[in-house]
Amino acid sequence: MSRFVHAVHMRWSDMDAYRHVNNSAYLAYLEQARVAMFFHRHEGFSAGTVIARHEIDYLRPVVYHPEPLRLELWIENVRGARFTVRYEVFDRDVLVARAATLCVPFDFTIDRPRRLTAEERGILAGYADDDDRAAIGAHS
């Protein structure tokens, strides 16, 4: 499996009254890593994608410090018009959260979901495990 690794810096304002990073800040961390994975590196996803669902399992609290968190991302469950991005969030090499985002390719000109393009499938295959990589290729 090829994982995409991205460092995300916490902000002081991400902490809540209990002196740990608030759960809502994690959505921003996931978004930063996902955008870096797809949009900063690949022009092929510029056609549009929307988020249909997020899931986050918080395993340990995180307290602000200047070192970035490490997020590792990979792709699972690629279908004709959706795919899942999986994440593991590490604080100083300790796993602190697991998450998943269901992404749907979207055509904003007609305001409807669309099928993944061959170029997008190729990009996703680069971040999938062997079983999912074979399934992605079978749908091309």
Rank of each mutant, 00 (worst) to 15 (best):
S2F: 09
W74D: 01
S2Q: 13
Y26T: 08
Y64C: 01
A100N: 01
P113Y: 03
E31H: 14
F38P: 02
V94W: 02
T49D: 11
E88M: 06
D130I: 12
Y58F: 15
V104E: 07
R112I: 03
R34A: 07
V62R: 04
G44Y: 10
S24I: 12
D16P: 07
A97Q: 11
T117I: 08
S13V: 07
D132I: 08
A52H: 03
D132N: 12
I110Q: 11
T101C: 12
T49A: 14
A134H: 11
Y64M: 02
A99S: 08
R19M: 06
R70T: 15
A25W: 02
P66L: 13
S46I: 07
R11S: 02
D107M: 03
S46T: 09
H54Y: 15
Y87M: 00
P66N: 15
D91F: 00
A47Y: 12
G48M: 02
L95G: 02
A28T: 13
Y18N: 13
V85S: 01
L73T: 06
E43P: 09
A134W: 04
D14R: 00
H42Y: 13
A118H: 13
A99E: 09
G80S: 13
R115Y: 13
I51P: 05
W74Q: 02
G137P: 02
V5R: 14
P68G: 00
M15I: 00
W74C: 02
G122E: 12
V5D: 09
I75F: 11
L30R: 10
S13F: 05
L102H: 03
M15R: 03
G137K: 10
D14C: 01
R70N: 13
V89F: 03
A135K: 10
L30K: 06
R112F: 01
A52M: 04
L116Y: 09
Y58G: 05
A128W: 06
V35F: 12
R34K: 08
A7V: 00
R115P: 11
A135Y: 06
E72T: 13
R34C: 04
F106I: 10
A28R: 14
W12C: 01
L95E: 07
L102E: 14
A47I: 10
S46K: 11
F4D: 09
F4A: 09
I136Q: 12
V35Q: 05
A33N: 01
L27S: 11
A81D: 15
H42A: 04
F108E: 02
V104Y: 05
H6K: 06
I123K: 04
A125D: 10
P105W: 08
V96T: 15
A81V: 06
